[in-house]
Amino acid sequence: MKAILIDHDDSFTYNLRHWLKPLCSQIEVFNHQDFFKTAPKIEADTLVVLSPGPKNPIDYPQTLDWLRSVPKHTPVFGVCLGLQMMAQALEVSVKPYSPPLHGKKSALCILNNDLENLKNKKVARYHSLYCDFESGQNDFEILAVSADDQLPMWVKHQTKKWLGVQFHPESFLTESADLHLQYLNNWLQR
């Protein structure tokens, strides 16, 4: 499997590349501005990964436009800001979270049997915003939440081939990073 990793001026992008490596034979990293300028062709077997990053989804209108127009069978995986952009693109509210959590850990509470082996695993959180999936009608399914504050951590879309995480699977603070990657792999094979 090949991957295109779109970097939103983040400082964890190359950790994400390292985390994805066992799954992807080739990972091309593009800064978001270069990606939309050059618009490389996305082949059928390519996973598109949206990196975390600073600021708010509305500060990246090109990524939002791209998400709204991408064919629904194109696999897209979003991390933190990446997930928030998926939510924003489909009119889910993205709101400030108080207090912001940066470099902190939460245990996972699992809502879907496919993620059962991630139960109680601690994940790293770096976010000031969150997706309020309860704010209106949408087709996102919440697969896992944080045990301490019940915020969606693993989320998938029910009709588009979209998967996202609010936490940082690439962080050294995240436990069993390989099991998280395995779930991404299982989802891709489906």
Partner: peptide, 13 residues
Amino acid sequence: SMIVDLLRNDLNN
């Protein structure tokens, strides 16, 4: 921890 993740990134780059 945040800075460790940042430096891991810079070295992984």
